[in-house]
C-alpha cells in the first residue's frame, strides 16, 4: 500500500535536511517536557481533587465548646461500654440528654434540635476515621491497656470549633483520612493517615511483638477481622 509507505516516509526523519531535523528534535524535547509537566500537574494537583468527593456533615459540631462542658474529656461522649466495646460516635439518645431543647443561639444547634431531636432521627454523621470493614480496631487495647491519647490517631479534633468537610474516595468509598490528606502518603504527624503501615509501624515500635511467622510483626488477626 503506497499510502502506508507515505506515512512511513513522513515519520522517518532520515530524509530531512539537518537543521530541520535538529529543530524537530528540539520540538520533540519541548513536547516531551510539556508532557511531563502537564502530567505532573495533573497527577499531583488535579487528580486528588477529582479522586475525592466533598461531603458536608449533616450538622456542624463544636468539639471545643463541648469539651468545656464535660468532665471526662473525650470519653464523656465517646465512651467505653461495659463489655469493653467502644461506642464511637454518640447516638442521638446521648445528645438528647442536653439538647432536648435548644440551649444556645447557634443556628446549627437549632437545626439539629428541629430536624433530628424533634423527629427522633439519628444523625447520619460522616466518620472521618472510619476504617473499612476488614479492620478490627480495639479502642480498649489502645486507650485502656496501651494508655494512648486520642490525639495520637485522631489529631487535635477536640480543639476544633467546626466540622471540616468530609472527603470520600470515589473509588473505594473510604474517608480521605485513611490515606491521609497528603496524596504522596508522606506524614508529619502520627494522625496524618491511618493506613495499615501506620498501624504496623507503631505496633513494631511500641509492642515489639514479632509473633507473625511471615512478617515478623504482630499477627494479622490483631487488626483484621
Amino acid at each position: 500500500m503506497s499510502k502506508q509507505e507515505d506515512k512511513v516516509k513522513e515519520i522517518s526523519s532520515g530524509n530531512l535536511p539537518d537543521d530541520e531535523k535538529n529543530e524537530a528534535i528540539g520540538f520533540g524535547i519541548i513536547f516531551f517536557i510539556i508532557g511531563i509537566a502537564a502530567s505532573l500537574i495533573f497527577g499531583w494537583i488535579v487528580f486528588p481533587k477529582l479522586l475525592y468527593s466533598q461531603k458536608k456533615q449533616p450538622v456542624d459540631f463544636n468539639h471545643k465548646l463541648h469539651m468545656e462542658f464535660v468532665d471526662d474529656g473525650c470519653e464523656s461522649c465517646h465512651f467505653f461500654r461495659e463489655d469493653g466495646s467502644y461506642s464511637g460516635v454518640p447516638k442521638l439518645a446521648q445528645c438528647i440528654d442536653c439538647h432536648e431543647e435548644v440551649q444556645g443561639e447557634d443556628p446549627e444547634e437549632e437545626r439539629f434540635v428541629e430536624e433530628y431531636v424533634a423527629k427522633g432521627k439519628e444523625v447520619p454523621w460522616l466518620i472521618y476515621s472510619k476504617q473499612p470493614d476488614c479492620v478490627f480496631f480495639s479502642h480498649a487495647a489502645h486507650v485502656k491497656k496501651g494508655g494512648m491519647e486520642c490525639k495520637t490517631c485522631h489529631g487535635p479534633i477536640g480543639e476544633s470549633t467546626t466540622l471540616r468537610v468530609y472527603e470520600e474516595n470515589r473509588v473505594t468509598g473510604l474517608s480521605r483520612d485513611i490515606w491521609g490528606k497528603n496524596i504522596s502518603g508522606l506524614n508529619k504527624n502520627t494522625w496524618d493517615s491511618m493506613k495499615m503501615g501506620d498501624c504496623a509501624d507503631c505496633h513494631m515500635e511500641e509492642t515489639g511483638r514479632k509473633s507473625s511467622v511471615q512478617t515478623e510483626k504482630d499477627g494479622c488477626l490483631v487488626c483484621h477481622k
Binding site: 473499612p132 476488614c134 511483638r209 509473633s211 507473625s212 511467622v213 511471615q214 512478617t215 504482630d218 499477627g219 494479622c220 488477626l221 490483631v222 483484621h224
Partner: peptide
C-alpha cells in the same frame, strides 16, 4: 501474597480475606 499467616502468640492460622 501473605494473606494467611501463623501467629506464634496465639497459634492461630489467620486468613485475611481482603489480602
Amino acid at each position: 501474597a501473605t494473606a494467611t499467616d501463623y501467629d506464634m502468640a496465639t497459634g492461630i492460622v489467620s486468613q485475611i480475606y481482603t489480602r
